[in-house]
């Protein structure tokens, strides 16, 4: 039974060599469809990544009440490193803050000549990167953590940035990923139809097999394997082409003014692309036989 099954599976692969030209054309069509779908996915994934990372970078300006002891300040500034998504921080004692202000004012520095260090509050500018979860939640959690620090008088951050990040996430969730799903479905339909048409040329063979008493699986299994192999091969070749396209695009994206990191598709996406093509090929074989 197992040997018979193995023979049928192998026959499905061997049958692909029976009409090389038709099979090659089918493979080309499957590869190009998968490549176009993959390219779109690659661009969207990178765009999504770029927008999320830009929208996910938050800068908090934390002000302590004037007169907070410097030891306590330094201790709290050290604890800022432990905040989730911590990227960088710059701290200013009142004296440092005054120096910075003087430098920033340049020619107008004499206007603050009478001020002492105590006139400005101790400050920390903390850069954080939100994880991919809801940025608003992240901001709220960070605010709570910062407000919990003793002596913190005020905190500033950009609320507009939160809205932007949130909007992009909502857009991605409601439009982009369904669009990618639709694109995948369309690609599967095109691939399926191509495989189905290539099987139409083997209708006589199927009729003759039925005539001599072949059962359903004897006929279906090799065709199903053939369709799946065609889809898988097309998907794998498309991934190869995508890798080449990625090299060119990554170079392009790395140059100014973009200066973007252009990543290749994650492994899960690659497997989904190749697996989806294989599944479409196999299903198309089944549909072709039922017609």
């Amino acid at each position: 039974m197992i040997a018979r099954m193995a023979r049928l599976l192998l026959r499905g692969v061997a049958d692909l060599g029976r009409n090389p030209l038709a099979q090659a054309l089918t493979l080309c069509a499957v590869t190009l469809t998968a490549f176009l779908a993959g390219l779109f996915l690659l661009l969207l994934v990178n765009l999504n990544q770029a927008l999320l990372s830009a929208g996910g970078d938050f800068v908090f300006q934390v002000y302590w009440a004037p007169g907070t002891p410097e030891d306590a300040l330094r201790d709290q500034w050290a604890r800022l490193d432990a905040l989730p998504g911590f990227q960088a921080k710059t701290t200013y004692t009142p004296a440092q803050a005054l120096d910075e202000l003087g430098l920033a004012l340049g020619g107008e520095a004499k206007a603050i000549g009478g001020l002492t260090g105590g006139a400005l509050p101790p400050t920390a500018v903390v850069s954080l990167r939100a994880p991919e979860a809801d940025p608003a939640v992240f901001v709220q959690q960070t605010l709570s953590a910062l407000q919990g620090l003793p002596g913190v008088a005020d905190i500033h951050y950009s609320a507009l940035q939160v809205d932007l990040a949130r909007s992009w996430q909502r857009f991605a969730r409601t439009v982009l990923w369904p669009l990618i799903g639709l694109l995948g479905f369309t690609a599967a339909l095109v691939v399926g139809n191509t495989v189905r048409l290539s099987l139409a040329g083997r209708r006589d063979e199927v009729d003759i097999l039925r005539l001599v008493g072949a059962g359903r699986w004897y006929i279906q299994l090799p065709l199903l394997v053939g369709g799946a192999v065609q889809g898988l091969a097309g998907g794998a070749l498309a991934l190869g082409l995508l890798a080449l396209a990625h090299l060119a695009l990554a170079d392009l994206a790395a140059t100014p003014p973009l200066n973007m990191t252009f990543a290749f598709l994650p492994l899960g996406h690659c497997l989904a692309l190749a697996g989806g093509m294989a599944l479409a090929g196999a299903l198309a074989s089944l549909v072709a036989l039922r017609e």
């Binding site: 039925r210 005539l211 001599v212 008493g213 072949a214 059962g215 359903r216």
Partner: peptide, 13 residues
Amino acid sequence: GARVPLLRRQVSV
């Protein structure tokens, strides 16, 4: 439909 192949194993055409 499942029994048609069995019939055709007894009947040649």
